[in-house]
Every structure is written in C-alpha cells, then in structure tokens.
Simulated assay, not measured.
Amino acid sequence: MESGDEENQAAGYDQPEDQGEAAAAVAPRRRALRTPREQPSEVERQLLEALQTRPVAPAPPPRSVDELFLLSLVPSLQRLSPQTKETVKFQIHELIYESSTVVLNLEQLEPME
C-alpha cells in the first residue's frame, strides 16, 4: 500500500467504507424517487386515457394510375432547364385545359329536353 492509504486507514478513513456510507446515504433517496405511487394522479390518468384512445391516422388511399403516370414524369421534368421546365408545365396545363373545354363544349351542344 502507498503511504497515503496507510495514513487514511490509521486516521480511520477507510475509503471503501466511506464510499459505502456515502452510497448508503444516497440510496434511500434514490429508492424514494424510484418508488411508484399507488394511484396515478388525475392528470396522469387523463393523459394515459388520451394516449390510449387517440385516433389512428388512416392509411393514405392508393395512388391512381394518373398520379403514378404524372409522378413518372417528375425525373424528366427535373432534368430540364428552368425556362424549358416552365414551358413544358405550361403546355401540359394548356393541353388539359383544351381537352376539358372540348368536353364542356360537347355537353353544351347536346339538345336540351
């Protein structure tokens, strides 16, 4: 043993015992913190109830064939320059608009009864 350890033992400062006493003094406090209460408080009960009864988010609906088709165009669209990209997007809007007005015009031409 080193001389410091011998002096501590001679003075009655045995380190393992001192550490053990300190740990024993802290242990009851730790146990007190770990001990669960018999009954949860009103707030805790309400929180638990809210967590257990919360609605589960519904699964998103499956994607349509049209959505999948348009998503397949995204990589090609992203490779275009910004100006070309805007032109292509405008052309897509234009095609859809023209196609939808043709249908509307046909509906208007049908004879009214």
Rank of each mutant, 00 (worst) to 15 (best):
D14V: 06
L71N: 07
L48C: 06
V56G: 01
E107M: 15
A10N: 13
A22E: 15
E42R: 00
E17A: 10
D5A: 13
N105E: 14
T101V: 15
A22N: 14
R63S: 10
D66Q: 11
Q52D: 00
M1E: 11
S64R: 05
R79E: 05
P111I: 03
P75H: 11
F69I: 01
G4H: 10
S99V: 05
S41Q: 06
G12C: 05
M112F: 12
Y13G: 01
Q39G: 05
V65N: 07
A27K: 14
V74Q: 11
G20H: 04
T87D: 08
D14C: 03
E107Y: 14
P60R: 00
V43W: 15
N8M: 12
G20C: 04
Q91L: 10
L109W: 05
Q15M: 12
V65W: 12
Q46K: 05
A24M: 03
E38H: 12
F90G: 11
D66H: 12
S3T: 04
A59Y: 03
Y97T: 15
A24S: 05
A22H: 11
A24I: 01
T87N: 10
P40Q: 00
S81T: 08
E49D: 09
Q15T: 13
A27S: 10
E21F: 02
L95F: 15
P61S: 07
L104D: 15
P36Q: 04
F69S: 01
P61I: 09
L71M: 09
A24C: 04
P82F: 03
E6L: 09
P28I: 09
Q78L: 13
E7W: 11
R37S: 14
R34G: 07
P61E: 03
R31A: 14
E38A: 12
E38C: 14
L73Y: 07
Q91C: 11
G12Q: 07
L51M: 02
E7Q: 14
P82C: 00
G20M: 10
Y13L: 04
M1V: 03
A57Q: 04
A10R: 15
P75K: 08
G20R: 05
L70V: 01
R34D: 11
D18R: 08
R29G: 09
Q46C: 01
A25I: 02
L95V: 15
L71T: 08
A57F: 02
Q19C: 08
L80Q: 06
V65P: 06
A10S: 14
